[in-house]
Design a protein around this nucleic acid. Sequence first.
DNA 1: TGAAATTACGCGGCCCGTAAGAATT
DNA 2: AATTCTTACGGGCCGCGTAATTTCA
Lengths: 273, 273
Amino acid sequence: MNTHQLEIFYHVAKFQSISRAAEALYISQPAVSSQIKKLESAYGVHLIEKNGQGIQLTAPGIQLYEIIRSFFENAIVSAESLLKNSSVLRISGNFLMTNFVIPQIFDHETNQANLIIKSTSSFNALTELKNGYCDLALISASSQPVLSADISVKKIFDDEIISVSKKPLEREVTSLIVSKSKIDVYKILEKNNPLFSHLPYTAVESTQDALSNININKNSATFISARFLKYFEKDYNYHYTGVKNGFYALYKSNNFHTDEILKLIEMIKSSTK
Amino acid sequence: MNTHQLEIFYHVAKFQSISRAAEALYISQPAVSSQIKKLESAYGVHLIEKNGQGIQLTAPGIQLYEIIRSFFENAIVSAESLLKNSSVLRISGNFLMTNFVIPQIFDHETNQANLIIKSTSSFNALTELKNGYCDLALISASSQPVLSADISVKKIFDDEIISVSKKPLEREVTSLIVSKSKIDVYKILEKNNPLFSHLPYTAVESTQDALSNININKNSATFISARFLKYFEKDYNYHYTGVKNGFYALYKSNNFHTDEILKLIEMIKSSTK
DNA sequence: TGAAATTACGCGGCCCGTAAGAATT
DNA sequence: AATTCTTACGGGCCGCGTAATTTCA
């Protein structure tokens, strides 16, 4: 298996275009075309097919793209940042932490050049930490995350969860959109709270996804952490639920930046008091 | 970033040896040595260092290895099996399902040549499914797994969870080893059952890990599913807990092998009745 | 007519192999 | 003396670029 051909195929699949891939790779169009041909003929599989002026992926092409995607999007990027400059700290965190808490800390600081911040779901951030794609994961979870032995966990703060929606919650809301990290909260409420027990729910990856969905389906509601309400207050109605949620910072115990990480965690803690 | 050099580095790191890497890659020892040198000098980083006759990884070397490892161990293998023969079905499942249920089904069947079966933790199997590294994930979980929209879930069967140990559970057991997929069960028992409430616990990746640990620390106990007790009965004492656990089959809705997958799920269901 | 992909062909870089040397046990 | 990694050097492959051709909107 020729990784060079996979890399070229990755770019072709990403852009659904041989020309765009050639641009991105800084090589000529025929060079890209020829490598794809070689990859295809090596296995006797068609990965792309003509589609009018351009091309599109075949079914196996789509599957191959899915398989190799995370390497070129995550692993290669992390490897480069590791090798180029070991002083960079790679943070993957959930929507609320990366979009509101982290920027607030660095409003009046200047060393954010050393940080690579990626906003994703809590679940993904954990996977990225595990794979070595980031140095620090900032996540929320209704129960303390269970992890492998080489990962350290520090609780940043506890928070109340509240439900938010565009419409008044008691009357007009017809469905719930629940992010994975708050699914336990939903299950408690479903059992004990008449307000939620009759509402159908949809599970999505992250709070960010849930909020985007509310902007489309304005009769739905989701759960966010009370502390972050100030960022949404003017757009949303809210309703206290009385269920706790924890925010956690996780990092590998053998990370070279442990001192920096601990310092950063302290800064986050004090800024969210 | 030269992926060819990364591939060579992966093998060097895996074997902690340039000679072994050369063997595995079917190229000469100096060729490997030279590519590592080029990778190091491209970024001005030392990845390996001399250690007596052989070599060992430096700190950044270890980190780089972690980052790229899953690509060469999972993605490349999956990509090859996809391209070489699209009729292969890749199954990742937890210890109990892959070691006891699946082999039992194919005892008197002959088409297991089309299957690639990988035994891992429930958590990892899910991640592999998500990344396209497998077509079917067979996992256990105390609550129904929450997933992205393009993944289908079928429940295979419900099962009672029991605690097992080498020593009589009530008297001699001094600690619990709990696999991630049964952590919810543990929390229920910790609250409600005096037998478990005073025992310290350690969380591990999988049931397999927990059972291995019991073989080392014979005063510990863990949870397994009652249906699988027959495979361990002569070695372990057990104790019913009265908590339910579900076994699930998960696959991507857009998989090309959906018919095969559904057929296989039916076979598993009927074989475990 | 222009944008995108394919075909044809020659050049140059780089990757590998062989052989000899150095270091460690 | 045996094993492992490094250095030196030459040859061959393959991946790229240029230019011309084909296809489609």
